[in-house]
Amino acid sequence: MTKIKLSLTAFFTGWFFAVLQFSFLMLLQINISSAYLTYMVITLSWMIGTVAGLWIPRLSMPLGVGLGTVSYYIVYTLVSYNPFSPITLPVASAGVAIAGLWAGHFFVTMLDKSMTTDSIFFHENNGFIVGLVTFFAGFTQIGRPFLLYVPLILAVGLFLSSRAEKPS
């Protein structure tokens, strides 16, 4: 049962990461620019955050997911209301990196829960594929409401699942 729970957590975390990453990208592309620089900023910042997340000594799932979600909505607000301020892109880059922290520390946390690396990456990657498809289908159907609500819904789902895990 625990194995299934852990697999599902990894799967939903991958889903959350994909939706969050693509939402960041789309936010910047809609509000600032679709130039390649935008894509580079998101990808590199996410990777920097991931590597930093691997090495930070402590980060719980609620805190990691919460930090990522709060960063996302700060960037959302900033690019929606002040897209061309000189601080927007640096702040967005920092926000993406903060969101990436959990993308790194998540793997360490799951390994500590006796999941093997192949299993974590397998389930997380499957979630990422579903997230990729969900994002594309969802964004083309409803547009900005997807960017506004879906990352939050997935984050709340992950947060609740982590609370449900605790008693066992």
Partner: peptide, 20 residues
């Protein structure tokens, strides 16, 4: 394994950036 995951995944991501 924990230490190896941290080292190896960091290095693999660094390689990914070099690929970029």
């Amino acid at each position: 394994s924990r230490q190896r995951l941290k080292i190896f995944y960091s290095v693999e991501l660094a390689g990914f950036v070099m690929g970029f």
